[in-house]
Amino acid sequence: MLTLALDTANDRIAVALAGEGRETMRAEAISRGHAERLFPLIDELLASAGVEIESIGRIAVNVGPGSFTGIRIAVAAARGLGLALGVPVVGIDALRLIAASLDEPVDGPVLAAVDARRGEVYAALYGPKGDLLESPFAADAEAILARVGDRAAVVAGSGAAILAHQAAISGRRVPPVDAMTATDPLALARLGSLADPAVAAPRPLYLRAPDAKPQPPVPGLLARAPTP
C-alpha cells in the first residue's frame, strides 16, 4: 500500500510517498503560501515517482501542534483527498513525528518540543520505541522541565534549545539536544502507514484555545435582560 504524507504545519512544506518498496519525498522551506504550493508539489512528487493519484491507498497528515492555519491546510487537503479517493486518512501529531525523526537513535525517552511562542513550548515524551509516555501539552519551559525533564534522554525539535536554555539557568540537568533541524517527511509516511485509522483521526491538534474572550455587556445599561 502506498501512503502519501502531507505536512504544512510550520515554515516548510513537505510531501512524501512510502510503501511497496519505494520511499520518495519533496520538501521546501516556505514561510507563506503553503496552500498555493501544496498541490503542485504533490503533483511533482507523484510524477517523478511515476505514480497515479488513484494508486494511493492512504493519506497521512501532520496534525500539529504548529501554525494553526498551516495545520488546517494539510488537514483539509488530506481529508479532501481521502474523500475523493475513498481511502483512509490518518493524523500524526508533530511531536511524535519529531521523536521518529531523530538523527541518532537513543536508548532512553525522547522529549519532543515545539516552540509555541508567547513563552510556551508544546511538549510530549516518547519511549525509544515510540511509545507515548507523556501526552502532548503546552506549558512554559520551566513547567515542562519540572514535569518530564528528568526522564528525557534527549530533547529534540524547535523547542529543544528553549528547554536546554531554561534548564541551564534554573540549575537543572541539561538534557542532550538532538541537532535535528526538520522532521523527516518519510517518517511521517511510515508512521501513517502503521497508524490505526480508527484511533489516529485527522483532526488538528492545536493544544491552545482560540484567542478570544467573551465581551462583558455595558454595566447598568439594562434594567433587566430582555428576552426577545
Binding site: 501544496l38 493519484i53 494553526f68 492555519t69 488546517r72 483539509a76 488530506a78 481529508r79 479532501g80
Partner: peptide, 19 residues
Amino acid sequence: LIGGVLVGLTTAKALAYAA
C-alpha cells in the same frame, strides 16, 4: 476570513485534483 477560506479552497483543490 482567510483561515476559513483556506479550508474550503484547499478541500476543493484536493477534490478537483484527485477526481
